[in-house]
Computed example of a mutant assay.
Amino acid sequence: MARDHAVLRLAVDLSILTVRDGRLHVLVVKRGNEPFVGHLALPGGFLRPDEEPLAAAVRELGEETSLDGLRLHLEQLPIFGAPDRDPRGRVVSVPYLAIAPDLPVPTAGSDATSAHWSPVASILDDATLAFDHCDILDLAVERARASLETTTVAAMFCGEQFTMGELRGVYEAVWGVALDPRNFSRKVTKTQGFVEPVGSRRTDGVGRPAALYRRGPIRRLNPAMLRSSMDS
């Protein structure tokens, strides 16, 4: 018995996250083509016939925003494939996540009329993204938050030398919560290899000089620094 098979197209969408001005930001583009022309969206697009998804993600990121995806660690997330997610037909998206410091101001290209960094909270609160990109972003943010529980990636967002307050600020920006300074400092310093004291202090002219640290040798936290434990 003959069966109907959907004509399927494969796309990639990218959630590129960074911390700017003490807040978690995401890279967004303004669409220049229908559907959703003029709406904000995550960078992405369709695979070419000879492409693997990761190669397409790197290409689309470069074409639409000028960012070099080869310099980022792109982590594949679970696919999004709801039948009605794209009005053009049956489109399955392979999403990717990258969270990195010191990312440059993007330059729009291809079918994007603009590209810029936008605070994640504003995007998700207003549900302003085209397609199901808010759902993709929501998943990506949760994955990024979980990565701070199990890895030392937060220290990458600080300078070569940093205060405990600066490191805490990264956690607060990504997790979206205020953390108790003493409890945070205690948990970080008790995790062997997370940070190392430099032996000097920095002063900003207000209050006591703050001790300086550098990133330690470990890259995975054991035990994990769970969000649920940070208020105790």
Rank of each mutant, 00 (worst) to 15 (best):
S228D: 12
L10I: 12
P217W: 11
H39F: 11
A41D: 13
E166F: 02
R168A: 01
R59M: 01
H25K: 07
L40R: 13
N33T: 09
P87W: 12
L24N: 01
Y171L: 00
D21W: 05
L72H: 06
E149C: 00
D86H: 15
L70G: 14
E172H: 01
D84M: 07
T107N: 06
L47Q: 04
A224K: 10
V188F: 02
A56G: 11
G38V: 11
N183Q: 08
D135T: 09
P119F: 03
A146N: 04
A115Y: 02
H5V: 15
V206I: 14
V198Y: 04
T107G: 05
H73P: 13
M230V: 02
R219L: 11
T107C: 09
E196L: 02
F131H: 03
E166L: 02
A224G: 02
P53V: 03
F36C: 12
F184S: 06
R23L: 07
P181V: 10
P104F: 08
M1P: 11
R31E: 12
A130Q: 08
S228W: 03
G109R: 09
V177P: 00
N183G: 02
T113H: 03
G22Y: 05
L137S: 04
V170Y: 11
A140Q: 07
V26P: 01
V94N: 13
G199D: 13
A154V: 08
D135N: 06
D111G: 00
L179R: 04
R219I: 08
E149G: 02
T150C: 02
R85E: 15
F162R: 09
G205S: 12
D111Q: 08
E196S: 04
F80I: 12
A112M: 01
E166I: 03
G89K: 06
S118Q: 15
F131W: 05
S110M: 06
L72G: 07
S122Y: 10
K187P: 00
P181W: 09
S228P: 05
L179V: 01
A57M: 09
D102C: 06
R168W: 00
L148C: 07
E160S: 10
S122E: 15
A154R: 05
R71P: 03
E149Q: 10
